[in-house]
Design a protein around this nucleic acid. Sequence first.
RNA 1: GCCCCCGUCGUCCAGCGGCCCAGGACACCGGCCUUUCAAGCCGGCAACGCGGGUUCGAAUCCCGUCGGGGGUACCA
Length: 488
Amino acid sequence: MQAAGLWHVGTLGSVTDAPVVRFAPSPTGFLHVGSAHSALANWLVARQAGGRFLLRIEDTDAERNRPELIENVLEMLRWLGLGWDDEPVHQSDRTDEHRRAALEMAEAGTAYWCDCAGEQVQARAQERGGPPGYDGHCRRRGLDRSDSTALRFRVPEGTTRWTDLVRGEVSFENTTLEDFVLLRSSGAPMFLLVNALDDAHMGITHVIRGEDHVNGTPKYLLILRALSLDEPTAFAHLPLLVNEGRKKLSKRRDDVSVADYRAEGLLPEAMVNYLSLLGWGPPDGVEVRPVEEIIELYDLAAVNPSPAFFDRDKLLHVNGEWIRSLDPADFVARASPFLPPGDEPAQALAAMAPLVQERVKTLAEAPAMVDFLWMEEPPLDEAAWDKALVRGRAAREVLDASLDELGRLAEAGDGAWVAADVSDAVARVATTAGLVNAEGRPQMAKAQAPIRVATTGRAVGPPLWESLAVLGPTRTLARLGAARERLG
RNA sequence: GCCCCCGUCGUCCAGCGGCCCAGGACACCGGCCUUUCAAGCCGGCAACGCGGGUUCGAAUCCCGUCGGGGGUACCA
């Protein structure tokens, strides 16, 4: 909340009191976690200060543009709960406007036409042994527009600086900036031009984006100044999200698709919560908390400028906490897309929900915890069978005694039984099978193992008494009998 | 190469000149609890890159150095 005052610093008056921010994805891939991180920061700032969070689709690259991906981006933002204001702006709709501004610069002399081919530029750079990049060859040639000329910005002398909310003062000597291209020879406007123009057009007050845009910022600023357009009141360059090799997260190497995380059973609350923790931490140290609180506490000025490792383990931990905090009915509803179709799986999960919630880190893990309840023959973990039934001590005795004790309980129970009675019966089984400790107490851990594998197919799972209570006497006894037979 | 940014436990975050022989979280290790597995609780391991300065006093300020990253397209 301390940061609230920041919105007013350097503004000219009451008009810009509430921040106007934007998320500007280019539809060249699925929304990835790095973009989501930026989108979240923008959204938080807008929601915190009663501002507006706008969307702009940067679709000016006709080559790589994949319109169908726009829908993925929007869907993921919706899933994350990062709702936007107004209709998304499509950059490609404003091309005429962009071109007009570029021509205006050509007219004013702040930009000039250049017919150098890329190879020529490179060759000259190599020849003079200097740094690669454009050398200003056409600066004074006074070329006219043609279908083989690109428009380049005439970088002025001086120093370009700005105050970054995350990084403090940042400055560039303009001599280190090359005369970059504004308009391709095809007439298509370039990213930097379009980006700056559209931000001005949309009245963006706070440009919040990844650190990879730092180097483009002086050019962005220079363009706005050449056109006498209003500059944003603040910039914030967020830390990059990196992989274990400390490299920027990339689509090729890393698991970055938000859609994939959703498919893995991450809760959007957990995703947003975890993302907020990269580069920032709440002042009170409470990490897992509702987004409403994060909105209140988030502060760009407190964001750590160094790169942050996207730690899957911690993400999963946060997700586990969120899953455990869910109301059981809500948990079942959210996990249902991960269940096989039909009423049975849903009912099985509902019957065991609280016990399952405590044991999974993702929704996708839930079905395997209760599949023995709806499957006629649950998949058998051979290693578990071998350990508990073949090599396990007194396995036959346990099964025999179980058939006996649980059979008696079933008869008394008239088709159903309760967990406490199952527990008592297994205690008697342990004693019968000789599984007792020095004090003569039944060793429940040992006794439950063969029964668990025989009835659920696995060595681990939810508490057995409750599991068998839901499974019911008929199926429990049938499976115990089958296991006994298989053992021989 | 050049430009820019960054540098506290393995990882994320706290620390903004004395409260720090550095705190929390994840991971890891041990213990307790316990019908398995989890969860929970208790405990442990583990960091201020290095060198100079400034100061009575530096993780905190300055300089340098080393290291890492990002950018350097008629991609966005």
